[in-house]
Design a protein around this nucleic acid. Structure first.
Lengths: 218, 218
DNA sequence: GCTGTATTTATGCAAGCGTATAAATACAGC
DNA sequence: GCTGTATTTATACGCTTGCATAAATACAGC
């Protein structure tokens, strides 16, 4: 009924930002469904209800689009974890706990996120630019973590020398990454919240402090 | 001088096992150099000094070859980690320590390994068969780890109930995976042996026991 | 040495890929 | 309403890919 006789596709102009977001969203949908290899220019365009040529109008090359999608996912995860902090109590230990729990639960711990992340990590190896982008993200995350760790230690009346907080950040970052990985790959093997609990417990052990202010056995 | 006029390529027949190994090795070399995307049938054949058609003679499809290569890498890593155990002292705590250290050092903690692993994880997402294969490998590793943990706990005179060892295995597996990841991605950011030390320390904290029998501050 | 067969090469095809380019069209500004 | 331009579509090119098939060849068994 939309007078589709055999004519040219009708279209609406959209703002640049809107288009970019839509194309990135379509890319992520493709990756989620069929993996990075399934994210072809044609498939992405189809998903975004747009013709392939338009992609090139907004992204010089397909790799640029993929890169933008990667950054979008990482940013989204960072924002989501950050949101958990804003809703957290003032206590530094509770904040660290909330941060960890957020990273080890929905929507961050999600197979789709892992799929895109892994596809990127595989690329990083052969692409210095991507490698740098990734390193920045990694260091950013670890720095944020180190601050939380430092404050938690101080709140517990423990010393927090840089030399130690660095080590702790490395170890705790590993715990979060490792559990995130396990959860993404085989979430069904764990009870609801089990990985978050495991993570918090392990981190408490590493830091030698409790992250729970009031009651409740670990 | 080898009478290469313009004639057909001369060749030697090789045993089936030898050929498979060579093809897998060539595949890994391609992945190492240009990532999974660089591992095309033609490139692999070139690297193995063979024509592309031969690949199909030994592997029904390219995915089968890639899958075999993945399994080969995982097996190799398992063997290498196992070798560290055989050379380790009898003490269960030292064995756990050696196992962790082996996994967080050369040649296991290597960017090439990560690249192949990540490429696979990205594939796994859309392929149930590969997903199952991966899960088996993961569980195998964790079970091996759980045994080491149990023995280390017992050697330290601590209780080792299944409920606890499972949790510990999950957490410690995460520590190893996470640190392995960090090391593969940015090995140059860490001092020699730093990640292994960090891992052992964190694991000691989680288990609440020391893994060093004699002296030496952590 | 001859012969049969398992192994290897050579050739080619059909499909899908990313990208380039020109024509069409929606919409803002006057 | 008309016009100019930024946006979008349409089309097609060249390349690479995985895979199929037929011909050639090395080598084992006699």
């Amino acid at each position: 009924m939309t007078e589709q006789t055999a004519t040219r596709k009708s279209f609406r102009r959209e703002g640049e930002d809107k288009r970019r977001e839509d194309l990135i969203a379509a890319t992520l949908a493709c990756v989620a469904e069929r993996g990075l290899a399934g994210a072809t220019v044609r498939e992405i365009a189809l998903r975004a209800d747009v013709t392939p040529g338009l992609i090139r109008y907004y992204f010089p090359t397909k790799d640029d689009l993929i890169g933008a999608a990667y950054r979008a996912v990482m940013d989204r995860m960072t924002v989501q974890a950050g949101a958990a902090l804003e809703n957290a109590p003032d206590d530094a230990r509770a904040r660290l706990s909330a941060f960890v729990t957020a990273n080890l639960g929905q929507p961050i711990m999600d197979p789709n996120n892992l799929s895109l992340w892994a596809g990127f990590i595989a690329l990083v190896h052969a692409d210095p630019i991507m490698a740098a982008a990734h390193r920045d993200g990694y260091l950013g995350f670890r720095d944020e973590l180190e601050i939380l760790i430092r404050e938690a230690l101080l709140a517990a009346g423990r010393p927090a020398e840089p030399h130690h907080t660095r080590r702790h950040a490395i170890a705790i970052n590993a715990i979060i990454d490792g559990l995130w990985l396990e959860g993404c790959l085989a979430g069904d093997m764990f009870a609801e919240g089990e990985l978050a609990e495991t993570g918090v417990s392990a981190i408490e052990a590493v830091l030698g402090i409790s992250l729970q202010i009031e009651g409740g056995a670990v």
